[in-house]
Amino acid sequence: MTISKKQNGTELEIALEGRLDTTTAPQLEGELKHSIDGVTDLIMDFSKLEYISSAGLRVLLAAQKVMNRQGSMVIRGVNETVMEVFEITGFVDILTIE
């Protein structure tokens, strides 16, 4: 999985490419832990994300909880497979998906 970041003041855009699963989730977790401080608008671009597993959901949930305190988090470009996972797990209810 590749992670690309774009920081614009307090706005942070993270684009993911590939699979977010048990092996790659710690990578995203480390990246977020490192750069989420002071961010008020977190934008996740999922247009190139092929798959998300429960380990990936856990990282998203943690990020959502942090952003609930310090701003907002938006997820963009969610494909059908990933959307299905969000629906099954009820994540659609707590995430902001555009």
Binding site: L57, L61, K65, E87, T89, G90, D93, I94
Partner: peptide
């Protein structure tokens, strides 16, 4: 219709 995961929130 699924609810949210347990222990999530």
């Amino acid at each position: 219709k699924a609810g949210f995961v347990l222990a999530g929130m």
